[in-house]
């Protein structure tokens, strides 16, 4: 097959076969008693998640279905809540390592978030090494925010130049959390950290802002994969860390459908809340209604009957 035909085939394959598949991989013991991460177990979780998601036994080949070798890849993490409730360096680096195995050159991988301070506080060592994987905040000299405003529907923002210019493909590696205003913060809302003014998008349960921001060209055209870091899930009083309401859930959630991934994340939070005797987010009038908006905009599925969830323990 020639290139263009191959690309068409891939697009159809994603849209028809796998668009709303969500894979939830549990790795009991991935968080060790001492609070460290069992690296081997974590890698198994990643491998298995990608394999199931792409219906392919070989994780390297699976990743090639998602990314091109020439891609400059951004892994957008969320480190706002500090060391106890951010994607740990081990989680990000393991993913980066898997991507390297899949053919992405290390120099083309950027692990990033809003600020260097938040990255450091979450345990990351900043790295601008030209040849290796970069770990940087938008406020790193030479990066920063765009000078041109991106205006789309209700969105008016300056994008992080990492998201707009430095990368060609993006993974949202988000922490799964309850959120006082949005209801749930996961893969889509993680991109609030890609613009200069996220504080302006929290009215009305963040609706329609989460969906509309996601639909901007710099996100919609580049986002390829959602991974919800659910090793620890803050199911109440988020997005800040509260040990009392943080569950050691030890799971990773994968999907090519950003809306479906977040929908499943929401259900995880609701189950944990119910288990602990807490009111549902709907009862607290903060259900993540932006998911329905996103579905209406054609960004993915937020209806349970249209989402295929595959759960597995490793």
């Amino acid at each position: 097959m020639t290139g263009p035909i191959d690309i068409t085939w891939k697009e159809e394959y994603f849209l028809i076969v796998m668009a709303s598949k969500v894979v939830l991989i549990r790795g009991k013991g991935v968080l060790t008693g001492g609070g460290d991460i069992d690296q081997k177990k974590l890698l198994s979780m990643y491998n298995r998640g990608i394999q199931i998601l792409m219906d392919n036994q070989n994780p390297k080949d699976s990743l090639r279905l998602i990314f091109k070798n020439s891609d400059r890849l951004g892994i957008k993490i969320n480190t706002i809540a500090g060391r106890k409730l951010s994607s740990r360096p081990e989680v990000s680096y393991s993913l980066a390592s898997l991507l390297q195995d899949g053919g992405i050159q290390p120099k083309n991988i950027i692990i990033w978030d809003r600020t260097n301070r938040e990255l450091r506080e979450a345990g990351y060592r900043l790295n601008l090494n030209r040849g290796g994987i970069k770990v940087i905040g938008t406020d790193t000299k030479g990066f920063g925010y765009d000078s041109q405003l991106t205006s789309y529907l209700n969105i008016g923002s300056l994008f992080s130049s990492i998201q707009s210019n430095k990368i060609t493909a993006s993974i949202s590696l988000a922490i799964l959390k309850d959120h006082g205003m949005a209801g749930v913060t996961a893969g889509m809302k993680n991109y609030f950290g890609a613009v200069h003014n996220p504080n302006k998008y929290h009215d009305f349960n963040c609706n329609p802002f989460v969906a509309e921001l996601f639909e901007t060209k710099f996100i919609k055209q580049k986002h390829k994969l959602s991974i919800l870091d659910s090793l620890i899930v803050q199911y109440h009083r988020g997005p800040s860390y509260h040990a009392r309401w943080a569950e050691k859930y030890e799971a990773l959630i994968f999907s090519l459908d950003p809306v479906a991934a977040d929908y499943v994340g929401w259900q995880v939070i609701e189950k944990l809340r119910a288990k602990k005797g807490l009111a549902s987010l709907k009862e607290e009038k903060r259900a993540p209604v932006y998911l329905k908006t996103a579905e209406k905009m054609g960004l993915g599925k937020a209806s349970p009957e249209e989402i295929k969830i595959i759960e597995e323990d490793v």
């Binding site: 809540a81 006082g180 504080n199 009083r237 988020g238 997005p239 800040s240 860390y241």
Partner: peptide, 25 residues
């Protein structure tokens, strides 16, 4: 409780958890 606050400066009444910023930024 739980390190949360409610800003009463303006009519937005932002309710914020630890490390969060108000609408004003």
């Amino acid at each position: 409780p739980d390190r949360e606050i409610e800003c009463t400066l303006c009519p937005r009444f932002c309710k914020l958890g630890d490390k969060e910023r108000g609408y004003c930024g």
